[in-house]
């Protein structure tokens, strides 16, 4: 398959591995682009819920962007948004029924947020910006990368919130019976605070490394 078939000439070449990797870190949908925030904050009160939500979103993202990429020359430009919405909503409904069939408990924990994957701007964004312009293998790689990045971010939040708020990790008790759980962390404010904390940490690390780099360059210039 020719690599550059749909890219505009001015753009630098993108390696296939990078299509996958960028979603994990450099363009992480949650930590960098702040996309799809509602489920990120709402269902990350335990590790299990976070992982389930991440996998469900990844599935919808992967299936719908693959289909959209496959049909991309068949879909007229004027009606592409309604077509995308129908395709995404279809896979969301499939996920909703599958989760109910797998575990009712999980379904009740995630609540309406499974249905709300349909308005997750991450999926619409990848469909419009990437899948509708790229061949199937690249679209699949991109969806997997973005999905993995999203799941990773949910996991980061879920782990911190569950450890602090319930003293356990994925349901396994960590600190014994004398631990006084920091209940606010599994309540709504905890979602905002923990995500804010992670962003703060990343911004601090980035600024530090930028400063180090600038200092090194200045030293080299002398």
């Amino acid at each position: 398959m020719p690599k550059q078939d749909t890219f505009t000439p001015g753009e630098p070449p993108v390696l296939e591995a990078d299509v996958f990797l960028k979603g994990l870190w450099r363009e992480n949908p949650v930590f960098v682009s702040l996309l799809g925030m509602c489920p990120v904050l709402a269902v990350t009160n335990t590790v299990m819920n976070s992982l389930a939500m991440g996998l469900a979103t990844t599935f919808v993202l992967f299936m719908s962007t693959s289909l959209i990429s496959l049909l991309r020359s068949f879909i007229p430009k004027q009606v592409r948004i309604p077509v995308f919405i129908v395709i995404i909503a279809t896979f969301v409904t499939i996920v909703e029924y599958s989760i109910q069939a797998i575990s009712l408990e999980l379904y009740e924990n995630l609540g309406a947020f499974i249905a709300l994957i349909v308005v997750n701007c991450l999926i619409m964004g990848r469909a419009e910006a990437f899948a509708s312009k790229n061949p199937l293998p690249r679209a699949m790689l991109d969806a997997l990368g973005m999905g993995a990045g999203f799941t990773f971010a949910l996991f980061c939040l879920g782990a911190v919130r569950e450890i602090l708020g319930s003293g356990s990790f994925a349901g396994v008790d960590l600190f014994g019976p004398n631990f006084q759980p920091w209940a606010i962390m599994i309540l709504p404010p905890g979602g905002f605070l923990v995500l804010g904390g992670w962003l703060l940490l990343f911004a601090w690390a980035r600024e530090r490394s930028d400063r180090k780099k600038a200092e090194a360059e200045a030293a080299a210039g002398d």
Binding site: P189, G191, L193, L195, G196, L200, W204, R206
Partner: peptide, 22 residues
């Protein structure tokens, strides 16, 4: 601090507001 400007600080403020709404 400069690194706290933007999304991080907004989220922490939202967390405090959310606590108030509790």
């Amino acid at each position: 601090p400069s690194f706290a400007r933007g999304a991080a600080l907004t989220l922490i403020i939202a967390g405090i507001l959310s606590m108030a709404f509790m």
